[in-house]
């Protein structure tokens, strides 16, 4: 302390703002250059490894794989959205039994890996083949794709229920009370007052959930569904050509980035009235 007291007659000024080539700037340019080199290297590798025969043989597979990935996610998200409504209702219910059941459902599906759930459905339900045969549902669970949709829909229903609940609870209580004092009944309030406000809050989590599902859907390759990842593994096992994985990475990145920007765009559109 005393040393600094003696030095205090020299006014200590804040450091001048960095200009020229600071250490940070050198590091930053170096890292960006590294990314650029890796990007150019990737393109150069893909160009040099270009094999039109291979491309003609496997490109249709990739396109159908993208189709299967998208339809798997699309169906699961829609079914999950329908299922999530009663679950979210249960989570907000005052009845402890209903609330407890809904909580247990959500806890199970959010606490265990999606891969374990898919295995449980695809391999596990095979243990109940006689019973499933008896009630005429075996045809459904025989197909790996259906099993994947089943597991994914249940899984995303749990997440979407939490999103829905959070969004509805984010709307202040006064909105309910105000609507009640205007003589709207509960359903009308929910539909006309609460949901329009809640869905603005929910949009971003919903977008994230779709993105998580698209990324998560890659695991169906392990239970023999030929989605984008499944086709990629098949191609790699036949050709031992590493570019099969690189192409899959590029396609997944394109899908996810497109979705992310679409969500950003929608959010900008629907919150225009909130901007000043």
């Amino acid at each position: 302390m005393s040393a600094s007291m003696q030095a205090s007659d020299i006014v200590e000024r804040p450091p001048p703002p960095a200009h020229g080539w600071s250490r940070q700037r050198i590091l930053g340019y170096g890292l960006v250059a590294l990314w650029a080199v890796m990007g150019i290297g990737l393109v150069a590798y893909l160009v040099s490894a270009w094999n039109s025969e291979l491309f003609q043989k496997y490109a249709p597979g990739y396109i159908s794989g993208v189709g299967i990935t998208l339809s798997l996610v699309g169906i699961s998200i829609v079914v999950g959205a329908i299922l999530s409504v009663p679950i979210a209702y249960g989570r907000m219910s005052r009845n402890p039994i209903i609330a407890g059941l809904a909580y247990a459902y959500v806890y199970f599906f959010r606490g265990t890996p999606l891969l374990a759930q898919a295995f449980l459905v695809y391999y596990g339900f095979g243990s109940f083949r006689p019973e499933l045969d008896a009630i005429g549902l075996w045809w459904f669970f025989r197909e790996a794709f259906n099993c994947a949709v089943f597991a994914f829909a249940l899984n995303t229903a749990a997440y979407q229920a939490e999103i829905l609940r959070g969004a509805i609870e984010s709307v202040p209580r006064g909105q309910w009370e105000g609507a009640a004092s205007l003589g709207l009944h509960k359903m009308q309030t929910l539909r006309k007052i609460i949901l329009p406000q809640a869905l603005i809050v929910a949009l971003r989590p919903y977008g994230n959930e779709v993105i998580l599902m698209i990324k998560g859907s890659a695991i169906v390759a392990i239970i023999t569904v030929y989605d984008l990842m499944g086709i990629t593994r098949l191609t790699y096992s036949r050709t031992f050509d590493f570019q099969s994985y690189l192409w899959a990475a590029i396609i997944y990145l394109l899908i996810v980035e497109t979705l992310r920007h679409a969500v950003d765009w929608i959010e900008r559109r629907i919150t225009r009235h909130l901007k000043r």
Partner: peptide
């Protein structure tokens, strides 16, 4: 505050948050 550093970090997150974990 350095723009190039931010860009490098953003590229990293964009790539690894966009790829499926399995991939």
């Amino acid at each position: 505050s350095e723009r190039s550093l931010r860009l490098a970090g953003d590229i990293y997150t964009t790539i690894f948050r966009g790829l499926p974990e399995l991939l």
